[in-house]
């Protein structure tokens, strides 16, 4: 016979696993610091790619000016300026990532704790069912 309570709990678990659970279970493989660091590394890579693409577009946009003033540009200060922008952008993104991924990890752990609690309940119900089955067989 179908155990309605167990079915309800299992449905809850399945819905969680389908949506937020996927990422939460993946995140549970990491410690918090490792998870945040790994995401910061990914962010650095993405920001670098994005910045280079942006700089490329900006360069093409001002190509005529650069050609005209090719011998008058102070390349050192220009390079420092570009680097300064890059570091500033990186600092902003790293800060945002640190805060947001830490909060994300915290929320994920809270959800996962609830999920394990429900799994424990299901386990208990399974044990109860098995005991009843044994009793009936006896």
């Amino acid at each position: 016979m179908v155990n309605t309570q167990k079915t309800r709990l299992m449905t809850k678990c399945a819905i969680y696993e389908k949506h937020a659970g996927k990422e939460d279970i993946y995140m549970s493989k990491y410690f918090k610091a490792d998870y945040v660091r790994w995401n910061i590394v990914k962010t650095i890579i993405y920001v670098t790619i994005g910045y280079l693409a942006l700089w490329g577009m900006y360069f093409l946009y001002n190509l005529n000016e650069y050609i005209e003033q090719a011998f008058m540009i102070d390349y050192k200060s220009y390079g420092m300026k570009m680097l300064g922008f890059y570091i500033a952008l990186l600092a902003i993104y790293i800060g945002i990532c640190w805060i947001s991924y830490s909060a994300k990890y915290r929320r994920s752990r809270a959800r996962l704790a609830k999920y394990y609690k429900v799994l424990g309940k299901i386990n208990k119900l399974n044990e109860k069912d098995e005991r009843l089955k044994d009793l009936e067989d006896y």
Partner: peptide, 17 residues
């Protein structure tokens, strides 16, 4: 090509969040 590069920039800076 500009469209693709702009899409890449938007993804790297914003849309991936």
């Amino acid at each position: 090509a500009t469209v693709l590069v702009i899409a890449l920039i938007l993804f790297c800076f914003f849309l991936r969040f």
